[in-house]
């Protein structure tokens, strides 16, 4: 238990009769960037709210840095910075005032506010009212609020929401920086795998409240099996030949037959077989299913 920043043990959570989170066992190692992936409505935000004790979990199911959350609420929250859904910003206050207010609540120096504004690139807009901010600026201010107390654990719920490509890259680099140089643990949720793939060290995939996969990013890569795509004419007879010869056909379009890839030698033998039977093979190549499709598969099958 000592090595996890976040650990949930068979966590269940319902809104009334509706189960939102089912038997969820998250294990977020210290110092990792944990990509928390799932389609919209999978239970990501609910889980993050439980980790912040905004929603009350059953006792002995949620542990932050090894401590049970309900009985250590304040001590735990001191170590967490969070951005949940839309950033929580007072529109009638300026960006700087929003951060100063947070400094007051956390009992930290007000000079931290300026420091954070430059960190997220809002120094110039510091004295502009927050309701005049663009979506991306609000998101940055939300990230600044999450970081201001210099927490050990960051919970970021779709932090790149509304950011332009540059902003997305900045947030990505900031996360990598925080984890590698400052030894922070970051749990970042997203519904886009491509985004998580570039930063995360660990991945958890959730759908309909259930954890479908959890492991390192490499373990996820191993799951995606390579396939062989064959572009061939007379597709119907070609596929019946292949079936007869004992190959398993995964997919078939009007041009391409897809079968599992086993080895280069096998691919060559298959090519010879087709040509000897009078087919014209225009191309034959190994394809690795990308993670995006894998993610779709994982969340679809359930």
């Amino acid at each position: 238990m000592g090595n996890y920043a976040i650990e949930t043990v068979g966590l269940n959570f319902n809104f009334g009769n509706q189960a939102i989170v089912k038997d969820l066992s998250l294990q977020v190692p210290k110092g990792s960037i944990y990509g928390f992936l799932g389609p919209n409505g999978a239970g990501k935000t609910t889980t993050i709210k439980i980790l912040l004790n905004l929603l009350k979990s059953p006792s002995d199911q949620v542990f932050i840095f090894g401590k049970e959350i309900n009985s250590n609420r304040i001590a735990t929250l001191k170590r967490i910075g969070a951005l949940v859904e839309q950033p929580a910003i007072y529109g009638h206050l300026t960006g700087k005032e929003n951060l100063v207010n947070r400094c007051i609540l956390l009992g930290i120096k007000k000079s931290k506010a300026d420091e954070m504004l430059s960190l997220v690139g809002l120094a110039e807009a510091a004295n502009k009212k927050a309701n005049k901010y663009s979506l991306g600026m609000k998101q940055r201010l939300g990230i600044a609020q999450a970081l201001i107390s210099d927490p050990e654990l960051l919970l970021l719920d779709e932090p790149t929401n509304g950011l332009d490509p540059n902003g997305i890259i900045e947030v990505r680099n900031l996360m990598i920086d925080l984890a590698t140089k400052h030894q922070k643990t970051i749990l970042v949720s997203s519904h886009l795998l491509a985004e998580i793939e570039r930063t995360a060290t660990h991945v958890g995939i959730i759908n309909k409240g259930q954890l479908l996969f959890q492991g390192t990013i490499n373990e996820l890569h191993l799951l995606s099996k390579p396939v062989l795509e064959i572009e061939v004419d007379k597709i119907e007879s070609a596929s019946s030949l292949l079936t007869k010869s004992g190959y398993e056909i995964m997919a078939k379009t009007d041009r391409i037959i897809t079968i599992p890839f086993t080895s280069s030698q096998k691919s060559g033998e298959l090519n010879t077989l087709l040509i000897q039977n009078g087919f014209t093979v225009s191309s034959l190549y190994q394809q690795r299913k990308d993670l995006e499709n894998l993610f779709l598969d994982i969340t679809k099958t359930n």
Partner: peptide
Amino acid sequence: KMLFAQPLN
């Protein structure tokens, strides 16, 4: 949500 996620009782 932000208010109640602060380390304050």
